[in-house]
Amino acid sequence: MSLSDPAPPDEASPYELLSWYAEMGVTEALDDEAHDHFAAPAQRAAPARAPGQPLRLAASRPNAAAATAPDDATQSARALAREAGTLEELREALAKFEGCALKATAKNLVFSDGNPEGRVMIVGEAPGADEDRIGLPFVGRSGQLLDRMLAAIGLSRKEDVYIANLLPWRPPGNRTPTPQEVAICLPFIQRQIELADPDILVCIGAPSAQGLLGFKGIMASRGKWVEYDTGTRRIRAIATLHPAYLLRRPLDKRLSWRDLRALRAALEGPAQAS
């Protein structure tokens, strides 16, 4: 029976059934016999061979999840990021980039917020549910706390600070980004920092501090000044605790307050040389 043949009164047509399977996300057809699809190919039983039939080797097929795929995506990200001459061009390049699987599950690209001309650039970890829905970084509870923290040292998101994330797409369930996801997206945030060209870089949270500054462990590295090479000059950089962590551990706000005071003092000091 073809897809166009009419189905019996009590049965769905093959076309309707296939359409339903597609909407439900079915991508493979299974037969009646159970198979262990996670078993190594060598562990599966070989099909019976008739006597006298010549032995033939199965042709190898390319694996879509080959280990070289992330490397290809990272190289593509580097090329696209380097071609972007402005922040708007970088945003457009990210919108077209298909090398990160997070894009398929996210609702929106979360590129930036604040003032690109601000002296301070803040880089967080990745968008959360609120950020993914609205398309702006740090707009949920942690973002509201961040705004209050900045206001405590006389900084405004709209005027003094430019805000972005290590990853522009939300990881499902707000999980921590994988090293592979960070490696793929890293060229974009590095180029974003270069184009924004701030005087001071503030990395918020462990993934941002590790990905951009090479720090191991946020508690041991927060509050320490290092130099970050933007690609055009070297600027001062510091890591601090993520507001989402502070909402869970309010007693550690005293540590972030020390970091904020250090940031304020750095801004009041001599301007960084270009």
Rank of each mutant, 00 (worst) to 15 (best):
E83W: 05
A73D: 02
E23W: 09
P41T: 03
E89D: 10
V26M: 09
M24P: 04
D36I: 05
E92C: 11
A67W: 11
A29Q: 09
A69E: 11
A39F: 04
P51D: 01
Q75D: 13
A66E: 09
E98G: 07
A40K: 05
T68P: 04
R61E: 09
N63L: 13
N63I: 10
F38G: 12
F97W: 03
A29P: 01
T74I: 14
P62W: 03
P41K: 03
Q43W: 04
A95K: 00
A95G: 04
A93H: 03
R82A: 14
H35S: 07
E88H: 12
A45I: 05
E88A: 13
R82N: 12
A46Y: 05
L30W: 13
G25C: 01
E89M: 01
M24I: 10
R78M: 15
Q53C: 08
P41S: 04
E92I: 08
P51E: 01
M24C: 14
S76I: 04
A81W: 00
R78K: 15
D71Y: 13
F97I: 01
R61M: 08
E83A: 15
F97H: 01
Q75C: 12
L55H: 09
F38K: 07
T27V: 14
E92Q: 15
R56M: 13
Q43T: 08
R56S: 11
L87Y: 04
K96G: 06
V26T: 10
P62M: 02
Q53Y: 04
L80F: 02
E98P: 06
L30S: 10
L57S: 08
A93G: 06
A77R: 03
A64R: 08
R82L: 15
A73L: 05
A77D: 00
E92L: 15
L80H: 01
R78E: 15
T86Q: 10
A67F: 13
A95S: 07
P41I: 06
P70Y: 02
L80R: 10
Q43H: 02
G85F: 09
L30P: 00
A59D: 09
K96A: 14
R44G: 06
A65H: 15
E28F: 05
R91D: 00
G85W: 11
G25H: 02
A67T: 10
A77I: 00
A45G: 06
A48F: 13
A29R: 07
L55F: 09
A79I: 07
A40P: 04
L94A: 01
P54R: 08
A73G: 02
F97P: 00
A73V: 05
A65I: 10
E28V: 07
A48S: 13
A46V: 09
P62N: 04
A48T: 06
A93P: 07
A69M: 06
L80T: 03
F38N: 12
K96F: 02
P70L: 05
D31N: 09
A58S: 09
F38L: 14
G52K: 01
E83Y: 07
G52I: 00
A65M: 13
L94E: 03
D31H: 03
T86G: 11
A66R: 08
E88N: 12
A48P: 08
L30E: 13
G25A: 02
A50F: 05
E92W: 05
Q75F: 13
R44H: 06
E88M: 12
T27W: 02
K96T: 07
Q43S: 10
A84I: 12
L57R: 10
G85L: 11
L80W: 02
T74M: 15
A59W: 04
M24E: 14
F38Y: 11
D32N: 04
A64L: 15
E83L: 14
Q75V: 10
